[in-house]
Simulated assay, not measured.
Amino acid sequence: MSDTSQMTDKSALTYFIADLHLAQNRPDITACFLAFLKDEAPKAQTLYILGDLFEYWIGDDDDSPFILEISQAIKALSSIGCKIYFIHGNRDFLLGKRFAKQSGMELLPEITLIDLYGTPVVIMHGDTLCTLDVGYQAFRKKSRSWWWQAIIKSLPLFIRRKIANNYRDQSATATAMKSQEIMDVTPIEVVRCLEQYQSQILIHGHTHRPAVHDVKANNQQAQRIVLGDWYEQGAWLKVTPESMDLMDSPFELIEK
C-alpha cells in the first residue's frame, strides 16, 4: 500500500483533479487552474492530479513561458506544504522526473492504491479501463514502450510540437467517430481492478463524465467516482474523513 496519504492534523482535506488539458489556446482554463492553486488548493493537505493536466506533453525540455508559468504555480503550492502527486494521462504520459521535481510533484504509478483516511482507494487516470477502444489501446501499448519514447524524445522540439498537434487533430477526428460505449469504461474491467487491489473505491478521470457509480466488487457494494474535466468550469473531488463530494465552479467564480 502506498504511503502517499499519511495525514497530519494540518487539514483533513484532500483534492483530486484530472483532465484540465492545459494549452496556450485556452487561457480561460489556465486562469481557472492558477486561481484554484492560489485560492482553493492551499486549504488541502494533499492534491492528486490524475492525468491530462496538459493537452499534450512534448518533453521536459520544453522551456516555453507557458510551461514555466504552470510549473512555478504548482511549485508555489508545494512550497507551502501541500503534497502534490501526479499520475500520467493519455495526453501527458511523457511528463518526466525533471518537470515533476521542478514543480514539487511526486510521480505515482499509473494505478496506485492509497490509504485515504483509513480507507484503501484505487486511483488512476482511467484510460486503461476503456478496453473496448481497441485502436487507442494498441496505440497506448506502443507509445509506452521504451523504444517509441526514445525516438520521440530524440527529435527536435519543433518537430515534436508538430507531431503533438497532428495527433491532437487525429484524436479529435477519431473520437467523433466512436460510440459513447466504446469511449466509456468497461464495467468488468472496473470490477477486476477493484478486486485486484482489494478496494471498494475507485477514483479516475479520462471519460469526462463526472459521477458517482455504484458497483459490486469483492462481493460488496463499491463506488467508482469519475472526475470532471475543465473545459467549461473548474472541477475537483473534495474528500474529508466524513465525505466525498464532486465540486465544480464556473470559470468566472474561481477566477475572482
Results as ranks from 00 to 15, higher is better:
T14Y: 02
A217K: 00
R98L: 03
D229S: 11
T175W: 00
I114T: 02
N219R: 00
W147D: 15
F99Y: 13
I80T: 09
S2G: 11
P65I: 09
S78H: 03
A44C: 07
T131N: 05
L95N: 01
S11K: 14
K43E: 06
I17Q: 06
K10F: 06
L155Y: 00
Y85S: 02
V239P: 15
I67M: 15
P250I: 05
S103G: 14
H125F: 09
K162T: 00
S145D: 10
A100Y: 04
N218I: 10
K38H: 11
I203D: 08
I114V: 07
Q198P: 00
L94S: 04
D63E: 15
G104E: 14
A211I: 05
A23K: 14
H206N: 04
P210V: 00
Y85G: 01
R161H: 03
Y15R: 03
K43Q: 09
D39V: 07
K75W: 00
F93C: 13
S103W: 15
F251C: 11
M1V: 06
E110Q: 14
D9A: 11
G89Q: 12
R26D: 03
L108A: 02
M177W: 02
R192D: 15
Q196H: 12
E242V: 06
T207Q: 10
F158A: 13
P250A: 10
F33Y: 00
G118V: 14
K178M: 10
A23Y: 04
E255H: 01
Q137F: 09
L95K: 03
E110G: 14
Y231V: 09
P187H: 02
L227G: 02
R91M: 12
Q149L: 09
A12H: 14
I152R: 03
A222S: 10
T207C: 07
A172N: 12
L237P: 13
F139K: 07
K216M: 02
I111E: 15
F86R: 00
Q196I: 09
Q198G: 01
K178Y: 06
V121N: 06
P241T: 13
K153T: 11
A18Y: 04
P65E: 11
D133E: 00
A235I: 07
S2P: 10
G234S: 15
